[in-house]
Amino acid sequence: MDVGIVGYGVYIPQYRIKVEEIAKVWGADPEQIKRGLMVEEKSVPGPDEDTATIAVEAARAAVRRANIDPREIGAIYVGSESHPYAVKPTATIVAEAVGATPDLTAADYEFACKAGTAGIQTCMGMVEAGMIEYGMAVGADTAQSAPGDALEYTAAAGGAAFIVGRNGKRTIASIDGTYSYTTDTPDFWRREMRPYPKHGGRFTGEPAYFRHIISAAKGLLQQLKLTPEDFTYAVFHQPNGKFPLKAAKILGFSKEQVLPGLVVTKIGNTYSGSTLIGLALILDNARPGDRILAVSYGSGAGSDAFSLTVQDGINNNGDATLKVMDYVNRKEYIDYGTYAKLRRLLVR
């Protein structure tokens, strides 16, 4: 494989709501929830933000970081489960806003929380085949949850964009390989025209998240003949803080490999943004030679695993964009009433 990441960027809205604030409304014990989920607070989109605006901000940052002419981007895929339109692509808005139109192909992807990594795989194939110079994959969401549902403590907003190109002097991280594991598993779904998703409760754990993450990670390690000791860092989809740490333990990865990319505790589950923001956080602090395992998970269900090796390009242009932690630390707390208005739980 001769492709890698040449640019990446993230965006996280500035509003936050604390677990305590949500728990107070529903008469729940916040300490128990925070311990159980390992989540303290989550990001909330502002009144003028949606998946398209988040995707555009992340995509613009990725282009600045890559320092390429956006007209060289030949494909843009935006993965989300909260596209603003049911019919009308988010990807065309992103393509126009980064200045990549009109000579490119673009489409929206849907696969719960792994639609962004599916886009990376598509771009990898197209770059490797020589169809395009650069391809951009974005994972972004403004996740909705029914009021009072367990998901309300974690369903958050954010996104990340990755630009894939042939390996060369711009390469931030080369992609050693990818492997996916996919089955028909009904752990989480939302029907057409329905505002909130439904989920299978405890069913979301063992047969869904863990089975797919672990099978995808094992499949990739086997394919590349690597072991957990070969990796400096590992990032797994972060629906909460507990799941990725447990998956790491089962696979034989240490906490030290996983904690540097664990960001769900401070921003919640950004769905299609989750694995990618975690990967961006690791890249923000990585050095040439570091090897990273990244495994996404999308309900329904599937996992995409990637092995990346950080290259000298990581030292290029690092000041061109804000870091993940800049966004994590830039925050404005809101109460549940404001949250209800922003998420349109209250409509006049």
Binding site: D48, E49, A52, T53, V56, R64, A97, L322, R330
Partner: peptide, 30 residues
């Protein structure tokens, strides 16, 4: 910053465009 400016109605078009926000942590030139 790129934001929703307004929407026509629940089933209408969403108009996107520029707004401005306070400079948080200025990235350097380039």
């Amino acid at each position: 910053t790129f934001r929703q400016i307004r929407e026509e109605s629940q089933d209408g078009l969403i108009y996107y465009g520029y707004k401005f926000k306070p400079v948080s942590n200025p990235p350097s030139e380039g």
